[in-house]
Write a protein that binds this DNA or RNA. Structure first.
Length: 578
DNA sequence: GCCGTTTTCGGCCCGACTGTTTTCAGTCG
């Protein structure tokens, strides 16, 4: 069983939690959390890093001690430090930390003084009114615990960014209309373009904060006010989305925006730089002693520590600050760089529009070419095409290309990768197409080895252009299939084929970290809509956000190429035909 | 536990809000 960076990071986070409960040195705790962040942001598995003979201590925040623990984990699948801690504090105590309002100090008190070591015991103690008698706790805290336990059963999950947008934008306009408001920006992970958001962070600049707070409380969608001060409030919307609103003066806008955009790890790194330079950054500005030297714009904040502006999508502490220092920030792709779309469906299978309507819609989006890639026969629920229907569709596309101007329709297919790695249609037919997009649509739970072999075999087919939604994940719904993506990226580099970044808001697959891995291996990524209707091309915006988060420039993306360049690149993938 | 053109020791980001206190610790972002 291979050990992933996420496994190591989770173990480090667990150690950090337990150490906090033990009242350990907070900086020691932070060291574990920093290391977990480093591992999660690493585009390569730590196990490979070691296999290549590189030292883990080269990684930021990982020294001798943590490197030793990682190596132990990689070799034995266990971390003795964690096991030692569990002898003193059982794992179930960590659940208590997930209750808002309960931090390490209070969990420690509950565990040591009351012997409470899991959520059930917590609930019983709260019902028995034993919590409010403990020092540092009171009636309100006890009540809150009971409420949280009740609502947590409903299980709150992260919102798709696209879903959050439907709640965020109307709230933004509502707040904009409050008296004295200058600007309203949705910051946080939303602004960084993450595929899901846990809550909304809204920054407001206004002469006076009181009208903003009042407007927020009067907003129709607010179900509950969780906290409210003079410049900051937290509310829960009826849909379950939590919203934090913060009001600052206009002169602090840039500093506040930087701070509320995060990520936390990025901001910490930035503040450290400031500290080294004898400055202090907070949400009100950049200060030298008591004097404010910057903070009106985000640019001024970065400039104060000698950095160029860093795009929000990059602010994940994955090396962007170091890249900025070296003047090596990528010029990120923009939506307008896209020249075409290489994955779309029509009513021949599970889409809703004709080929012509889809082509017109793509043209209206400013695209020069569109590949029609309907499903293949194996996908019966989608009325997948067999060879004869595909050939008929190809003829229809040829005729349409004669008829319409301003956009070129490419002949393609989204062909199923069967369980043994063969493709769902004969190579003889596939090789007549302009491109072949291949995808896994069933048998998601094969072992990692078999699943990887399956895809590698598919890539060996005579005609294989693009691997669609490579991990098959559906956000909040289905986890990624088990595959050795590094091997697949390597194979794509060797064979000259491409990986998709599917822009559907619940896919966004490849994700940001894997986009970066593809880029580093020199594999071009195709940012596709997978549109099933004429309106659906709008999702390309989400794909572009994810591509930016993956550090992709226009040159790293296949469908920024002109039609001529694109056809030449695709031809190489179709060239080994019979 | 990490880290170092001031350091191998002594630092480690910073502020708002809540509840429980009666001036502040704990939690959160």
């Amino acid at each position: 069983m291979p050990i992933h960076n996420e496994d190591i990071a989770a173990a480090f986070d667990e150690i950090a939690d337990l150490l906090e409960i033990e009242n350990a040195n907070p900086f020691r705790v932070r060291a574990y959390r920093n290391a977990a962040l480093t591992l999660r942001g690493l585009p390569q598995e730590a196990s490979e890093w070691v296999a290549q003979g590189r030292e883990l201590t080269e990684l930021p925040g990982i020294g001798e001690g943590l490197a030793k623990k990682i190596n132990e984990f990689l070799q034995t699948g266990k971390m003795s430090a964690l096991q030692q801690l569990h002898k003193k504090v059982p794992a179930s105590v960590e659940e208590l930390l997930k209750i808002p309002g309960l931090g390490p100090k209070r969990v420690r008190a509950l565990f040591l003084n009351e012997g409470i070591s899991n959520l059930d015991q917590l609930e019983r103690a709260a019902r028995g009114r034993r919590i409010q008698q403990l020092p540092g706790f009171g009636e309100k805290t006890e009540q809150k615990i009971l409420e949280v336990l009740a609502s947590q059963r409903k299980k709150k999950q992260r919102f798709l960014r696209a879903t959050a947008a439907r709640y965020a934008e109307p709230l933004r306009s509502w707040l904009s209309r409050a008296t004295g408001v200058d600007s309203v920006v949705i910051a946080g992970s939303y602004r960084r373009g993450r595929d899901t958001v846990g809550d909304l962070d809204i920054l407001v600049t206004a002469r006076d904060s009181a009208p903003v707070m009042q407007a927020l409380c009067e907003y129709d969608e607010v179900a509950e006010t969780l906290s409210q001060g003079s410049t900051r409030a937290t509310v829960l919307l009826k849909c379950g989305l939590q919203v934090d609103v913060r009001v600052v003066e206009q002169k602090s806008f840039g500093a506040a925006l930087q701070y509320f955009t995060g990520s936390k790890a990025h901001s910490i790194q930035l503040r450290r730089l400031a500290q080294d330079a004898g400055l202090k950054i907070n949400e009100y500005g950049v200060f030298k002693g008591r004097r404010r030297i910057a903070g009106k714009t985000e640019e001024s904040v970065y400039q104060s520590v000698g950095l160029p502006f860093i795009a929000p999508e990059l602010r994940e502490a994955r090396g962007e600050i170091e890249a900025a220092q070296r003047g090596k920030l990528p010029k990120l792709i923009e939506r307008s760089d896209l020249r075409g779309d290489l994955h779309s469906h029509t009513k021949a299978t599970d889409g809703t529009a004709s080929i012509k309507a889809m082509a017109r819609a793509a043209q209206a989006q400013g695209l020069d070419y569109l590949a029609i890639t309907d499903h293949s026969q194996h996908l019966r629920v989608a009325k997948g095409l067999d060879a004869s229907r595909l050939l008929a569709q190809m003829d229809a596309i040829d005729r349409l290309n004669e008829e319409i101007r301003g956009i070129r329709i490419l002949k393609g297919i989204e062909v199923d990768i069967l369980e043994d790695g063969s493709l769902d249609l004969d190579a003889e037919v596939l090789c007549r197409l302009d491109l072949v997009v291949a995808a896994v649509h069933y048998q998601f739970d094969l072992s990692r080895r078999r699943q990887t072999t399956r895809i590698l075999r598919a890539m060996d087919s005579p005609c294989f252009s693009i691997l669609a939604h490579p991990t098959g994940r559906l956000l909040n719904n289905r986890s990624a299939i088990e595959i050795d993506l590094d091997k697949i990226i390597q194979a794509a580099a060797e064979r000259g084929c491409f990986l998709e970044l599917n822009s559907q808001p619940d896919r966004l697959d490849l994700d940001d970290v894997n986009c970066l891995a593809a880029k580093q291996a020199g594999v071009l990524v195709s940012v596709n809509s997978d549109a099933h209707s004429v309106e659906n091309f709008a999702v390309l915006d989400y794909g572009i956000l994810q591509a930016k988060r993956g550090w992709l420039t226009a040159r790293d993306v296949l469908n920024t190429r002109s039609l001529k360049e694109l056809l030449a690149l695709l031809k190489k993938t179709m060239q080994t035909s019979a």
